[in-house]
Design a protein around this nucleic acid. Sequence first.
DNA 1: CAGATCGTGTACTATGTAGTACATACTCTA
DNA 2: TAGAGTATGTACTACATAGTACACGATCTG
Lengths: 118, 118
Amino acid sequence: MSETFGRFVRDRRERLRESDATFSVRQVAHRIGVEPSFLSKVERGEAPPPSEAKIVALARELGEDPDVLLALAGKVSSDLQTVIRRRPELFAALIRELKNMPDRAVLRLVREVRDGDW
Amino acid sequence: MSETFGRFVRDRRERLRESDATFSVRQVAHRIGVEPSFLSKVERGEAPPPSEAKIVALARELGEDPDVLLALAGKVSSDLQTVIRRRPELFAALIRELKNMPDRAVLRLVREVRDGDW
DNA sequence: CAGATCGTGTACTATGTAGTACATACTCTA
DNA sequence: TAGAGTATGTACTACATAGTACACGATCTG
């Protein structure tokens, strides 16, 4: 485990801090509902990433995509898991089929479904 | 939680047992690598479902779809999670888009990708 | 009817998850 | 130069996960 999650969070937070002093470990920790020492450890990779709820709050705080931050933490959003669990065969087949497809292929499907004639 | 996992497993195992005496709690437990008392508790919903690896072994043993059994256990196969984590935005968008689509729509996509002109 | 096999009850445990609480030392800044 | 704010080190904890170990009484079988 290369602990890219912590590095990423620290990087984004410090960048935001350059123009906004409220992005200290203490204040961000307080806003997402954890102790500063814990956030500090997380950012330095000394503690594993926090729970899904805290990660989502952190993403909102940092202006990042929650799904991306969750992915860096080695997690998948529980609402996506719920969708898959409701129709496991169908979604398992689809996801495995798309596993090695290029981004543009997946994106094409997304658009096809979104504004398609269904 | 209505513990449908345990009920399902017990049902399948007992059905198989009618024609094959080796499908006792003890022997199946031994084959999937857990203690009989644990499998017994799981089947009666007194213990939560086992780990992913044991569930997959159990599915193989019972001739059931691993993804379905995992879903009943409230889990999503870790290999699917890995696929999603590699491209979180893309897959999150696709899955959320398909959340309320009928089975046939999803199935159409699967086939489109499988034997499509990509 | 003895021995094997069966399901299950009870007690226990190791590891991981998700943090808190508090103290300490550093660094701006008014 | 005092005090406000800052990051981090140390120690601890509650709860969940994923089981094992062993004994017991019931039942089946040769």
